[in-house]
Amino acid sequence: MPPLIQTENLWKIYRTGEIELAALKGISLSVTRAEFIAIMGPSGSGKSTLMHILGCLDRPSRGRYLLDGVEIGGLKPNDLARIRNQKIGFVFQGFNLLHRTTAIENVELPILYDGLSVRERAARAGEALERVGLGDRRYHYPNQLSGGQQQRVAIARALVMRPQLILADEPTGNLDTRTSVEIMALFQELNRDGITIMVVTHEPDVARYASRIIAFRDGIIRSDRPVSRHTDAKEVLSKGLFESSKDARGEVP
């Protein structure tokens, strides 16, 4: 079985007039199935660019990217849309839910572009909401839900097509510490079920729930190491250990 993600010498160059800016400078990376990866690095280090390329929202300027054994570079926009729909789930910092649209309809959104029957759609969306613990919030609108609940709806939306890969860009950036840990617990749970998870974050507290941490700087991978003793978010929650983390240090949540 090939690795889920395989990149070889990936470059991304942005051109503004005369000036060329390389956001990625030859990234080679291999991710096997059911890994939980945290991508860290300061802003402008190229981590978001990599996420966009891995998520098939963007194409590399140079280099190869194979997702699930399929070469992505040569695909047309419609094929990329299909891959995003079938194989990838996105979770964003700002949740990116459709406002004035109920939770269940937000979750149904990816299924609309797959052409499943009405009944199947409702069943799957309901199932995904149950999975993130919001089975009783189906008909709530985003503005009637807390930040954590909104992010859970977004995760349910990412899950609903049963993807192999979930890409989360600063998923806890807008959440307080306790909720952040809850969200990470949910990711860990999904990861145990075999979904590969990649989380972009600049908080070490969040990264410690992953099994592998890749650090970026200036468009190259500075370090790529497994987490020796990775933390179980559920355990942290039950023992109330999160109190000592960023809240205690007086950081703005």
Partner: peptide
């Protein structure tokens, strides 16, 4: 932004 979300979850042009 709505268009972006829809595209991210698999809407084609």
């Amino acid at each position: 932004r709505e268009i972006g979300i829809r595209m991210a979850v698999g809407a084609r042009g």
